[in-house]
Amino acid sequence: MTVELISGDRHLTAVLVGELDHHTAAAARELIDARLERLTPPLLIIDMAGVSFMDSSGIGLILGRKRTAESYGGSVMIKNPSRPAEKVIRLAGLQELVIPEKAGGSPVSEKERKRK
């Protein structure tokens, strides 16, 4: 699993690519938290389009970052979950964290959401 961290205006995006399980979640957690705790962005976006496999360890990763973000008043959203990620997210009842998609299929950006 690779983790790419992209700092935006008022958000941090973590792009996860590869298999997300108990083994790979530990390293992803450390990478994200190091940046999250330093920058304390109002919003952390976890981009899961490239997650080819996920089990409940991915839910632990999402909820753990949500806890970290909320500890300083931030929040977490999930962008573009792949089919395997989306199934487990739905099972865990975390759909409300997924950024809704536009009719065209591409996700609504934070900016557009605020404009509405």
């Binding site: 979640a25 089990d55 409940s56 360890s57 099972l91």
Partner: peptide
């Protein structure tokens, strides 16, 4: 503390 979500058996069952 290990960030286990408590969903392992739920996933196996589903």
């Amino acid at each position: 503390e290990g960030e286990r979500a408590g969903l392992g058996f739920a996933v196996m069952e589903a």
